[in-house]
Design a binder for these strands. Structure first.
Lengths: 211, 211
DNA sequence: GTCTATACCTTGATAGAC
DNA sequence: GTCTATCAAGGTATAGAC
């Protein structure tokens, strides 16, 4: 069956996320699967094929969920809240794949065969853009918001936050534990504080996921 | 003289920043310096020694400037503005070194001989913490601010923003040019919007550097 | 499906001539 | 200060026995 193959994919996902794709060798993956390096090539043709298997479903899921939220029926602020929650939730669902998608973004942008990643990122950018544009037009967000800088900043914030929460935290000794709920709440406060229309700054934040 | 040595350091800085430390080979550095790979070892004992030379001054400068701002005589909000501006300015001063310091943070945290980097980051964290604590106590910032999450978030924001501005931008084709001033102004608006006390949300932001 | 064995390449680093 | 020449280690990938 494909079960052994999937086992190898999971081992590779962990190693790619922890050490990076370039720094993870076929031999180490094989070691952790308790087989020899040559045997990996019975399951996969190349190292790249393993990377595809690690990230492909994650890319599709995030793109589909993002566009679905942007096309839902609620107001722009609830959509934004749902998008922020989604960004942090998917990392909880499969933090290794999403961590790799962010940290290997340069590689994924240039490597032959990975064009679908850039394509999906383009789709997601346009979904965020539509949501923010709506919110500005409806007077929910600051009127003079630079959409590109805002989307770029929020995405970098959420990606690096999730990466810290699910990975870097191991190395941080000076801090106590944070729950995912607390981290989500912090990011909602921070981001909405930054982009809400000044007149709405003290309104309660819609905490429910709307998707 | 040490001039040839410095030339090699500059070439290495560019390559480490663009391709990563691990992906940059001694041979490529030598190629760009128009010498053979073996000749590099007349100037440096190891590849690590080149990395030290690339980052050491940048670490010292940022740590000293950060602690200096935190100990200056103005109010906490002006200090925070100065710290934000400093973070973005140092990348303009030597974006390669600061980009490496952020992107190779895992390596720098674990590698023998690089303990001074973690030491400086600890000093800087404590400086930021003192500034935010002051601001909360003085009623300038939100009273219930989680200091660790706030500092961590702002630092990730500024580091990834500067990295995007000075490097990733090359690959972004859909956007027009942004000036550094515009990016600084955006980040000041975003961060102060997120952490200011609600009653002060419409006050003008002190734009002058106070250091 | 895994092992043995290995081809072929690139890596960081070294020794000694010039 | 650079070159020639090279080493030992480790990288991806392959072929064929079991």
């Amino acid at each position: 069956m494909a079960s052994r193959r999937h086992e190898i994919v999971q081992i590779a996902a962990r190693l790619f996320a922890e050490c990076g794709f370039g720094a993870t060798t076929i031999r180490v993956i094989a070691d952790e699967a308790h087989i020899l390096s040559g045997s990996i090539y019975h399951h996969f043709d190349t190292k790249d094929e393993i990377l595809h298997e690690v990230i492909r479903d994650a890319v599709t899921f995030l793109r589909d969920s993002t566009t679905q939220i942007s096309k839902s029926e609620c107001d722009a602020e609830r959509k934004l809240v749902a998008l922020i929650r989604l960004s942090l939730d998917v990392h909880a669902r499969d933090h290794q794949a999403y961590s790799i998608l962010y940290n290997e973004r340069r590689l994924l942008r240039q490597r032959d065969g990975f064009e679908y990643v850039a394509q999906a990122k383009g789709d997601m950018y346009r979904a965020w853009q539509a949501v923010l544009q709506d919110g500005v037009a409806a007077g929910l967000f600051k009127p003079n918001l630079d959409l590109f800088l805002t989307i770029s900043t929020i995405n970098r914030m959420l990606n690096t936050c999730a990466d810290w929460f699910h990975h870097d935290r191991i190395y941080e000794h000076r801090i106590g534990p944070f729950s995912l709920d607390k981290v989500v709440a912090f990011n909602l406060d921070f981001i909405l504080g930054a982009i809400r229309h000044p007149k709405r700054i003290s309104q309660p934040i819609p905490r429910q996921d709307s998707a």
